[in-house]
Amino acid sequence: MILRLVVFDVDGTLVDSQAQILGAMAQAFGRLGLKPPECAAVLEIVGLSLPQAMVRLAPDMTEDERAQLVDGYKEAYATMRAQSLSPLYPGALAVLDHLAKDRSVMLGIATGKSRRGLVHLMAAHGWEGRFVTTQVADDHPSKPHPSMLHACLRETGVAPHQTVMVGDTAYDMEMARAAGVHALGVSWGYHPANRLGARVIDHFSALPAALAEIWNERAA
């Protein structure tokens, strides 16, 4: 049996966390008496690890000030997370259930979230045991460095050409290409589809067919 791997980004791909991200960022900057970045600027950095994100958002600040922004964001996000759960995008759960029934397909996660944040999210959505490999910002360089995907491949033993990275940002697509795996973009996330430079789907229901097409092209 040929084993295949589908690796998902989280924010903007599986869950719509835009409100919490924007709110936490506003609080982080507000704690330092600073005007929050524009919405578009914040969504642009979703997917990056927080230290790299703050370099993009506050390039003229000192390293210590950016560290304060990171701490403020983490604290604000944790508070919001305890109060409400980021919802899944329409169709996400049904597709995850569908893929889980295929014994030849394994599921993974590669996210800019912390381990703590991902564990909380997985427990809240009942995802324990669903993903065989989960890679987070705590353990790797920021996307688009391929380290997360390299770890996914090592942990599962799946070949790169049998692996698909599913994400909503250019960082996800660049990471996939750097790791030598297939890139599949989604149009409902935080980067416009024309920035992804990859095959793009517009609804979760299209994912199984897109995966089959990718793997069939490889087999042809």
Rank of each mutant, 00 (worst) to 15 (best):
V7W: 14
V7R: 05
V10E: 03
L14Y: 12
V15N: 06
V15W: 04
D16N: 14
D16C: 08
S17K: 09
Q18I: 04
Q20W: 01
I21L: 13
L22A: 00
G23R: 07
A24K: 08
M25N: 02
A26S: 00
A28P: 06
F29N: 05
F29K: 09
G30K: 02
R31S: 01
G33W: 08
K35P: 07
P36T: 10
E38L: 15
C39R: 14
L43K: 15
L43Y: 03
E44M: 14
V46A: 03
G47I: 04
L50W: 05
P51A: 14
A53G: 10
V55D: 07
V55G: 01
P59D: 15
D64V: 11
D64T: 09
E65K: 11
R66K: 09
Q68Y: 01
K74C: 07
A76Q: 06
A76C: 07
Y77V: 01
Y77R: 04
T79R: 14
M80E: 10
R81F: 06
S84N: 09
S84A: 15
S86Y: 02
Y89T: 01
V95T: 10
D97Q: 14
D97N: 13
H98V: 02
L99A: 10
A100P: 06
A100Y: 08
D102I: 10
R103Y: 13
S104I: 05
I109N: 00
A110W: 02
A110P: 02
T111Y: 00
G112T: 03
G112Q: 03
R115M: 09
R115Y: 07
V119D: 15
H120C: 05
L121Y: 06
M122H: 10
G129M: 08
G129C: 06
G129Y: 11
F131C: 03
V132G: 00
T133P: 00
T134E: 14
T134S: 12
A137H: 04
D139A: 10
H140A: 03
H140F: 04
H140W: 01
